[in-house]
Design a binder for these strands. Structure first.
Lengths: 145, 145
DNA sequence: GCTAAAACGAGAACCATTCTCAGCATATGG
DNA sequence: CCATATGCTGAGAATGGTTCTCGTTTTAGC
């Protein structure tokens, strides 16, 4: 057991030093970060950090309900603290994704009955509108070839 | 120009035979299909079909607003006809994703002002609840290591 | 200190997707 | 009817983010 004491939530095991560093970087950032970006930023600190461990811990933090994740059209995953409730407009043509400054879903208050959830324990939700951004509408003749 | 005549929608260029085949398979399927699954099913028909073309046409159909796409946690993309308005419960631990039989968002009627959209032309939206499925809650001791 | 168990890092492996490029189909103009 | 330009197609190679492997390092408990 390489765990450090520090029990912020009885529901969750204590976090290791690298996991705390990772969370801290995510919280300081004002945007979602990819695994690679996170790795780069962590390297600049004093601790050693391997890419594999960054991904390992991202998975663990996500399972613990501390980190949320979203996939961009290019396949990258981007991460943010769970409590951040941002949603996005994403272009199906160029892949550009930008924050949508409203949450159209009554978070938490979702009228989701327990019956519908069937034992599923919700942690966060993602809402995304996909379409064509202005510049793609203008540049593309929209031909199927 | 290898396009075949057949103008179903003045807003959109006519579709080629492979694009129509692709759409047909998606419409017959009662679930989202991945690019690879789509490719397999198309191979079974009479026309020849290459994987590259399947992906090429999926991209084009998506841009034309005929097909929607969603990324699974394992990195695969799954496709469906645009008009299908399904949403999902997805487990952050095992990656299992199942349909959620309600749409908590007032589709179309989203109170999204044009100001917020800033020229963005919406085609479809995705809504997904991420959390822990029952079996993952039971099996995992939730340790950070 | 010493040992067993857990976490770690570097690099290889993975795999869905995209790219490359030579060949072929379509449409048109001569 | 044939020549030619255009651009779609498929096989296979390349790409790139993420995961796996495995030998090493760190931690916890004694």
């Amino acid at each position: 057991m390489a765990q450090h004491s520090y029990p912020p939530d009885p529901d969750v095991m204590p976090l290791g030093p690298r996991q705390r560093a990772l969370l801290a970087v995510l919280q300081e950032a004002n945007a979602e970060l990819s695994g690679q970006e996170l790795h780069e930023r962590l390297r600049q600190g004093s601790q050693r950090h391997g890419l594999a461990t960054v991904y390992r811990n991202l998975r663990l933090l996500q399972r613990s309900g501390l980190v949320r994740c979203r996939k961009l059209p290019n396949g990258e995953s981007v991460y943010a603290p769970l409590e951040r409730d941002d949603h996005h407009l994403t272009c199906v043509s160029c892949g550009h994704s930008e924050p949508l400054p409203i949450c159209p879903v009554a978070t938490g208050g979702l009228g989701l009955s327990k019956v519908l959830l069937q034992g599923f324990k919700p942690l966060f939700h993602t809402f995304e509108i996909h379409g064509l951004c202005l510049s793609c509408q203008q540049s593309e003749p929209l031909s199927h070839g």
